[in-house]
């Protein structure tokens, strides 16, 4: 089963509060990423760091369709997913500072954000590595008769990995409640999809495993939200997996070390015209759902949130060196 929703037909307009909420969520991600880039250049943040600019509509739209009981498995480009799931910007930034108050105690950094209470199973930095984990989380739910969804984010690069195909097959074979969300930003690091896939119809690949699949405009938050709502309804009703391909574009370099030799500035500029935040802002204004004052308030609130998060991260502490080898093995037995 495979249907196409190219986003040409706009999803229905939404009410003021919800619209402002979605816009605010996307702006929170964008401003956090802006701050991360700034802090990276001042060396407050090190290691590999991958920013989400341009793709915000996906995390925001999809997470709207999940409940707090559902689980999330994400990739190394997961600041936005973590933030929208409910991790504080402070705990995220503290993690990137390497401080012990960070969400992973400074053991993970940018690529490994975790939160057990929010069922946020990480930032996985091996492409495709999170998909089998998501299958297993859903298997555990099914075996325990828990009606929950496991949502797994990954990029188009993961589709080339064997783990993608093994996971699609297992999830369909065992009828597991997994929402697979492919963030297709057209590049696996610097290799364009057309240089890595013999068939670029990613939703079609999922469909070949009998996984219900839809391709959606990943630059349109309402389209993503509507598709994700429909997908999770199907998953919850049937207890079977669903594949959502969100077609998007990464505005920034792959990571902070990327000289972007593989794409032109003109191509990036063309996609920037479809910025999910700018287009949604304009649309809401056109529909009379957003005033300049609303936008000003959002930006003001978000700026304050980010500033407080930076102050928090700065004030956080370093884990003592004596604790270096903690968390290799559990410190308590379990029942």
């Amino acid at each position: 089963m495979k249907t196409k929703n190219t986003g040409k037909k706009k999803a229905a307009a939404t009410n003021h509060n919800h619209a402002v909420h979605l816009l605010r969520s996307m702006i929170r991600i964008r401003r956090l990423e802006d701050k991360c880039a700034e802090l990276y250049t001042t060396t407050k943040i090190r290691g590999f760091m991958h920013l989400y600019d341009g793709e915000e509509a996906i995390a925001v739209g999809v997470l709207e369709a999940l409940t707090q009981d559902d689980a999330i498995v994400a990739t190394y480009r997961e600041h936005g997913h973590a933030l929208i799931r409910g991790l504080s910007a402070g705990s995220i930034l503290a993690e990137m500072y390497g401080k012990q108050e960070g969400c992973s105690r400074g053991r993970g950094g940018s690529m490994h954000l975790f939160d057990d209470k929010l069922r946020f199973y990480g930032g996985n930095a091996i492409v495709g590595g999170g998909l089998p984990i998501a299958v297993g989380l859903a298997l555990a739910d099914k075996m325990q008769q828990k009606k929950r969804v496991t949502c797994c984010f990954f990029g188009d690069g993961a589709v080339a990995e064997g783990e993608f195909h093994e996971s699609m097959n297992l999830a369909a074979l065992w009828k597991l409640p997994v929402l697979f969300v492919c963030e297709n930003n057209l590049y696996a690091m610097g290799t364009a999809l057309k240089y890595s896939q013999s068939n670029m119809d990613l939703a079609g690949k999922a469909a070949s495993y009998d996984v219900a699949s839809v391709a959606v405009d990943g630059m349109d938050v309402l389209a993503v939200e509507a598709a994700a709502q429909k997908a999770t309804e199907v998953i919850r009703f049937k207890g079977e997996p669903f594949f959502l391909e969100c077609q998007t574009y990464r505005f920034r370099a792959h990571s902070m070390y990327d000289a972007e030799l593989y794409r032109t500035k003109a191509e990036v500029d063309e996609w920037k015209k479809r910025c999910p935040i700018a287009t949604f802002t304009q649309r809401l204004k056109n529909e009379g759902l957003l005033s300049d004052a609303d936008l000003e308030k959002i930006e003001g609130d978000v700026a304050q949130e980010i500033n407080e998060a930076v102050a928090f991260a700065e004030a956080c502490t370093w884990e003592p060196l004596e604790d270096l080898t903690r968390f290799v093995y559990s410190e308590r037995r379990m029942s």
Binding site: G136, L137, L139
Partner: peptide, 11 residues
């Protein structure tokens, strides 16, 4: 990997 996920999920 599914075993790892199932372990994380309480099995």
């Amino acid at each position: 990997g599914a075993g790892i996920g199932a372990a994380l999920g309480g099995m």
